Simulated assay, not measured.
Amino acid sequence: MIVFERNLWEPVERYYFRSTRGLTPICELARQGDSWEVLFYRGATRPGPHPYDSFDHAKAHIMRFLAPREDELRGPEAVWAAANANPTATPAGNLQTRHPRRARRRSSL
């Protein structure tokens, strides 16, 4: 899945797009005056900057480009992604067989 995030301490409004399993961004989308510019760090034959008039239009193009290429462009794998890649076995005694909120009915005697 592709996500985008912004660092609030940066003086320019800039969004970084990366894979949820990747550690480093694949591209950035930054405000330049009244327009937006896309700059690719890897994967594109022409890294840019590519100008766009609106944020939504630029984001749609980025997502359309990155979604099918996510695995090859993700870059170094994040620690949390590597940890989740190999699920650990759960002992049979820890499996929950009933819903935790369902209370047992007491017999009325």
Rank of each mutant, 00 (worst) to 15 (best):
P91E: 09
P25N: 01
H99D: 15
L73Q: 09
S54W: 01
I62L: 13
A67I: 08
H61R: 04
R101S: 14
E10I: 09
R69I: 11
L66W: 02
P87H: 02
R105D: 11
S54Y: 02
D71N: 11
Q96Y: 04
M63D: 07
R69V: 09
E37P: 00
R102K: 12
R104M: 12
G33K: 01
E10R: 15
N86S: 13
R104P: 14
I26A: 08
M1A: 10
R104T: 09
R104I: 09
W80Q: 11
M1E: 10
G33N: 02
A44K: 03
A67L: 09
R105Q: 12
L29G: 02
Q32F: 03
G48W: 03
P49A: 07
P87Q: 05
E5D: 07
P11F: 13
A103Y: 00
H99L: 05
G75I: 10
R46S: 11
E70A: 12
A89E: 10
T90C: 11
T24W: 06
E70I: 14
S35I: 02
G93H: 04
Q32N: 10
L23E: 15
K59G: 04
R21P: 00
R14S: 14
R74E: 15
R102I: 13
G22P: 15
L95Y: 06
L39F: 10
G93W: 01
M63Q: 13
H57F: 06
V3E: 12
T88S: 11
R14N: 09
G33W: 00
T88F: 03
P25I: 04
Y41F: 15
W9S: 14
R105A: 15
A60Q: 10
E13K: 09
I62V: 15
G22L: 02
E13T: 12
V38Y: 01
D34I: 08
Q96P: 12
A30Q: 10
Y52W: 07
P51N: 11
T20G: 06
R14Y: 03
N7T: 07
R31Y: 00
Q96W: 02
A103C: 04
I62Y: 01
P25V: 04
A89T: 13
